[in-house]
């Protein structure tokens, strides 16, 4: 088959390469929030066909999967987390892929780490110590994660504590009841308070989309979060009964695009919960690349919240290198 695919020049009104200014937020624009329209059937159709319109094979698949690794917020958020477990996770974060595989992929001279390590506040010091010198940031879930229903002062204090402990990224949960009740002012104020508490740390706002009921509410909540100064909007805690879906992600990505076009500030996106396979990772990367462009597939604008994704990607990379389907037990344990 001749390779006659069209030659792309400038697929998106691009966000520049290199460091971006943080989103400072805007005033709450209720007219804008009210004008949001999302048609679920049309969104689902787009989400379903996005992954049938694009696919990457062979070297391209390997390249994309390696990129996906750098976007993972390697996460452990369990009641039985221990310092030992977190140290193991951090070791994996530093060396996510076996050296022999990286060599075979021609990547030996390219440092490869995950995007961040994401833990509960209690584990921040352990993670900080384990990641020292790696450049990998520690992200802490905060504000009464996962329900977000503790007193506001407690939640704000949690953020302060994690920032003081060295977390560079804070994943907060919103009070879902504010979004469900349409109290956009209340939601805006809450998130703006979190943003202020974060200081220099980056704020990722978890919407808990599985509990918001409709795509329209997801879009409105995303927009309010960005107006209030979110650096990232994030789908889920991973603890809701419905995890990140492509159609929810599509809705959030489009809202991010609207916000970028109207304000000139680029906000990141983090799908989380239920993203477990290499195939999932490629689907989300495709979504981001198609809806927002390749710049939004970089670490400062896109993360996967995932715990078991990495192992499946490793297996696929080994398959790419050896031509044999790989066993999970041969990939180094986190």
């Amino acid at each position: 088959m001749p390779s006659t695919v069209s030659d792309h020049v400038a697929p998106h009104p691009s966000v520049p390469a290199g460091p971006l200014p943080r989103n400072p937020g805007t005033a709450l624009d209720l007219d804008w929030v009210g004008s949001v329209r999302v048609n679920r059937s049309a969104s689902e159709r787009r989400a379903a066909t996005l992954v049938t319109r694009r696919t990457v094979k062979k070297a391209w698949q390997a390249g994309w999967l390696l990129r996906a690794i750098t976007l993972i917020d390697l996460t452990t958020l369990a009641g039985d987390d221990t310092p030992g477990r977190v140290r193991r996770l951090c070791a994996k974060a530093r060396r996510p892929v076996r050296d022999d595989l990286l060599g075979a992929l021609g990547m030996d001279d390219t440092p490869l780490t995950v995007g961040a390590v994401c833990v509960y506040h209690a584990m921040v010091p352990t993670a900080m110590a384990a990641l020292r010198g790696s450049g990998i940031p520690v992200a802490a879930v905060s504000t009464g994660f996962p329900a977000g229903l503790s007193p506001l002062a407690t939640r704000v204090a949690e953020i302060h504590a994690s920032v003081e402990a060295g977390a560079e990224e804070i994943d907060v949960v919103i009070s879902r009841h504010l979004a469900l009740a349409g109290d956009w002012r209340g939601l805006f104020d809450e998130i703006a308070t979190f943003r202020e508490a974060c200081g220099e740390a980056h704020l990722k706002v978890i919407l808990g989309t599985g509990e918001l009921g409709t795509l329209r509410t997801v879009a409105r909540a995303s927009l309010v979060a960005m107006m209030a100064g979110a650096d990232f909007v994030k789908t889920s805690t991973g603890k809701e009964s419905e995890n990140a879906t492509l159609s929810v992600s599509l809705t959030m990505a489009r809202t991010i695009r609207d916000y970028w076009e109207r304000t000139g500030f680029a906000v990141g996106f983090k799908p989380a919960g239920g993203i477990r396979t290499a195939k999932d990772a490629l689907a989300w990367l495709t979504l981001m690349r198609e809806e927002l462009g390749p710049r939004w597939c970089e670490r400062d604008l896109f993360r996967f919240g995932a715990s078991s994704l990495l192992a499946d990607i490793e297996r696929q990379l080994e398959h790419h290198v050896t031509g044999r389907y790989a066993a999970l037990h041969k990939q180094p344990l986190a």
Partner: peptide
């Protein structure tokens, strides 16, 4: 294209049926 170049650019490649 090398894997590394694809990793860096996230280009699409041929996917022939």
């Amino acid at each position: 294209m090398t894997v590394k170049a694809i990793f860096e650019t996230l280009e699409y490649g041929p996917a022939p049926e």
